[in-house]
Write a protein that binds this DNA or RNA. Structure first.
Lengths: 155, 155
DNA sequence: GTAAAACTATCTTCCGATAGGTAGGGTCTA
DNA sequence: TAGACCCTACCTATCGGAAGATAGTTTTAC
């Protein structure tokens, strides 16, 4: 996705995109930041009543991206490319993962799960990795399997 | 990494690289294929005597890439970029993941672990995702945490 | 009238790819 | 055994295009 492609999609000229986002790094950072913000908003909507339903809702956030948009988590892509990406983009990506782990950690702790932080990290990694494996294999069932197996690890 | 960059590293001209790998797709496929072959060779060396030691050796294969080369699994990168990559590259990437799951499935089955296939998928996804999260966060400990948590899920 | 936001036009750099040539080594045959 | 031939692996040179970015100008909205 070049400046010209993006400009074309929006309906303006590439020079106008540069007006809002001077460099590619600025554009990338804004993209990840917006993605993280929207994800955070979805997290805040999740009802943390029972552990199981909360986890299901959490997984559904990932699953939706995989199924509907036929793409994968933006931060999985950015994270995989972290080497060679600008530092400001990487720090936003890191912040996204931190946010996810923190949310899960809080949820698990609240439900008296042992080693909450470790399991939170496992779930995030498994879901991100699961999206990649499923996407590369063109088989969404692989993601569902991973998500189920990850949930089965809790308790 | 362009044809010119690669040619420069090898010490020849980019046209000569095109002689061996006519298109970028050919080059990418060969790269992933070689990576998978080498990984397979390492898998074959693993002593599957005890489950724990075998799993440790398996995780070490990933960990080594993360620590020594200061990079991550090639197939994590290719898988994350699967959308937009040539089909021949994607099928090699898929084959790599299949191979990993099959190896773990056999190991777990051999050790009478229930839901071996599901857990094999979980481990692969967790390790691939763990590398990405750790790389993006520039914190190798995150990967080690994930690897430990994944192993703790077995049995 | 001013400031934001779009535009035109252009520059430089890099990319993947191709055409065509060259040097060296091996092979077949009269 | 000498010449004709061919294959491999590199080379030089170049093409068309796309990319990121900038300078300067015009339009639009309040």
């Amino acid at each position: 996705m070049s400046f010209r492609d993006l400009a074309n999609d929006v309906g303006i000229k590439s020079a106008s995109v540069h007006y809002h986002f001077p460099t590619k790094a600025d554009l990338g950072e804004a993209l990840v930041a917006r993605y993280a913000d929207r994800f955070k908003a979805e997290l805040d909507k999740i009802e943390t009543g029972t552990l199981e339903s909360a986890l299901n809702a959490y997984v559904a956030l990932y699953s939706r991206a995989l199924v509907l948009n036929e793409s994968i988590c933006l931060c999985a892509i950015m994270g995989a490319e972290a080497i060679g990406l600008p530092e400001n983009v990487n720090s936003r990506t890191k912040a996204f993962f931190d946010m996810n782990r923190a949310w899960l950690d809080a949820l698990l702790t609240q439900n008296n799960i042992r080693s909450a932080a470790d399991k939170a990290g496992l779930i995030v990694s498994a879901l991100e990795g699961g999206m990649i494996v499923a996407s590369a294999s063109n088989d969404r069932k692989l993601f569902d399997q991973v998500a189920e197996a990850a949930k089965a690890c809790i308790s």
